[in-house]
Amino acid sequence: MIIAVIDGMGGGIGGEIVAKLREELPSHFEIYALGSNSIATSTMLKNHANKGATGENAIVTSVKKANVIIGSVSIVIPNSMMGEITPKIATAIADSEAFKILLPIVPENFELMGLENKPLMLLINDAIECLKKEFNIK
């Protein structure tokens, strides 16, 4: 199974997701660190992603291979993350056949209604539990 973790800016959220995935899942799961910039990719690789790639073309190509995509809601919003998420990236992620687990972290001019305000680590824990449940991982 290939899990694509997508992040931008400094990669802090993606780095935390990769670290938690490594802690919770068997080692045979492949984790792709897909960064909209090299700092984000590097941060995720430091947390033991199997492979890393940076930029629009790398993300668009890699999400086609992924079984699961994990990131913030911002990864499907064109021009979010200060423009790092291009319309082509957002479309490729949204159109991907992969199961998507999106954390409710959005740009300042968005508000997602009906969601409980939780700390980042609890959101990541919830995302990992969703992945385990969806794919019957013990």
Rank of each mutant, 00 (worst) to 15 (best):
V5H: 01
A4L: 15
T41Q: 09
G8L: 04
E56A: 04
K20G: 13
P119Q: 01
I13V: 11
G83P: 08
E56C: 00
N79F: 10
E56S: 07
I124L: 00
N125M: 14
K64T: 14
I85L: 03
E108F: 08
A92K: 04
F110R: 13
G12W: 08
E30H: 09
P87W: 11
N109C: 04
A40N: 11
P107E: 09
K118I: 04
K88N: 07
I69A: 02
G83T: 01
S72P: 04
S96F: 03
E84K: 10
P87R: 05
P26R: 15
K46C: 09
L102C: 01
F29H: 03
V76T: 06
I6P: 08
A58T: 02
E16C: 00
S74R: 00
G55Q: 01
A127L: 02
T61H: 06
T43C: 05
A90D: 03
I2D: 10
V63R: 13
T54R: 02
E23N: 15
K64G: 10
I70T: 05
L21A: 01
I13G: 12
E16F: 07
K118G: 06
V5C: 09
L122H: 14
L122W: 14
P104I: 08
E97G: 07
I128R: 15
V60S: 03
M113A: 11
I70Q: 02
N136S: 06
E129A: 15
I75N: 05
V106P: 04
K51F: 15
N109K: 13
D7M: 04
S38I: 14
E111S: 13
A4C: 10
G11D: 14
G15E: 02
I3V: 09
G114R: 10
G52S: 07
R22P: 09
I59D: 10
S38E: 13
K138V: 14
V73A: 14
K20D: 13
T41I: 09
